[in-house]
Design a protein around this nucleic acid. Structure first.
Lengths: 218, 218
DNA sequence: ATCACTCAGATCGTGTAGGAAATTTCCTGT
DNA sequence: ACAGGAAATTTCCTACACGATCTGAGTGAT
């Protein structure tokens, strides 16, 4: 299916900063560049628009979504803090043997690359994406999983700064969440996920405003 | 923009049961029926696919999304219970004067029609949709609002049974939530929203399984 | 006689090519 | 330097061709 290939190609172009945030996406230009006719490009862009990866300006064409503002990133992490700790707790409660094995396999696949190359970073980011989706999946709630996926949070964070916040500490935090899930300890899983997100949030939002005391959720 | 009109037209067809759940959606058929060429129909269907209102089977066409199963409806309300009480609390904390006025206006617009006609039911359902979106909006979190809207929960519930669960009690519960928000009482707003959703949930899922005691969230 | 398989016609999704309308850009004239 | 207008680019839709899938009849086997 050509339209699907085009869809993936454009997503990759956005992911790799070839199409920068806010850049105009010419429908004919992409068609020529990819060697196809405009029709499948239109279909792909229509889907990307529903996913909010591009925005449409009638009679003027498409642009890639702009970078998240400070407030929007804050809001994004607030949302993640609302659903992901909950998902981690439910995963600890409900994950079956096959699910726990998948979680262990994901962690094994990322023993410790941690080189400083761009590719290494991308691999780690891909692991991070898979890990969080997997936790949402193990929670047994398709709604929560889809809600998480539709935030495209890794894409947004990646576009903002693809050099910060992922490293050995991320893996250590993932291991802690994994351990709690495997131990069937919902309280520990929830706390570990909350801590993981708050660490990433503070890391990325630094300097962070010192309004009131205590973390986002209390 | 023709594609936008087609998009809205198809959404309306789904909403009004003209296109039944799981029904095949012919691309050429719709084009003839709407008096346009297939291209804008394809674009509209691509967007509806991203919104999960239709599903695509490659080389075989589109179908409207199937009805929600009991488990999926349960999952949907679990998700609503996760985000909407939170949103109600944040709305009570953060809503400004203009927001509170909009909430009051929405409630005024629905004094008490409550006739038993189909149109009356549709009007009430539309109010219900607007009310819940408005609460999410007043919470100040675009992520939560979008996550809620993307569930299309009113569409799904409407398709399952468009005759149950909406009535004077719904309005009374909305009033209670509104009062708590206007009183800037987050705890009461959260509790009222939780009670509202649980009432709707139990009403719709009856007979409900009697696993353990107490409501969904504990 | 009934059932299963095969093959042909029809139907529909998919991609291409071309033309109309609108916007943007560039040039010219004041 | 600024306003007006025309050319060029681009979006958007239509019309058409190709290929795959589904439907039905017909044939053969059990």
């Amino acid at each position: 299916m050509l339209a699907d290939d085009v869809h993936e190609a454009i997503k990759a172009l956005i992911m790799d900063h070839v199409l920068e945030p806010g850049a105009r996406v010419s429908i004919d230009g992409l068609a020529r560049q990819l060697g196809v006719s405009p029709t499948p490009v239109r279909e792909a862009l229509a889907r990307l628009e529903s996913a909010e990866l591009v925005v449409k300006e009638p009679l003027r064409g498409y642009r890639t979504s702009p970078l998240l503002s400070r407030e929007q990133l804050d809001d994004l992490y607030q949302f993640r803090l609302l659903i992901e700790p909950w998902a981690a707790a439910r995963a600890a409660e409900h994950a079956d043997a096959e699910g726990r094995e998948r979680l262990e396999a994901e962690m094994r696949s990322c023993a410790t690359p941690a080189s400083d190359t761009y590719d290494s970073y991308k691999a780690l980011a891909a692991h991070d994406t898979r890990f969080h989706v997997l936790v949402a999946e193990l929670a047994g709630s398709a709604q929560v999983r889809r809600a998480f996926e539709r935030t495209h949070c890794h894409l947004h964070v990646f576009r903002l700064h693809y050099d910060r916040g992922l490293g050995e500490r991320t893996l250590a935090e993932h291991r802690r969440i994994t351990r709690a899930v495997l131990d069937r300890d919902p309280v520990a899983a929830e706390a570990a996920m909350r801590g993981h997100l708050e660490a990433a949030c503070y890391e990325r939002l630094r300097p962070v405003s010192e309004e009131a005391g205590g973390p986002t959720q209390g």
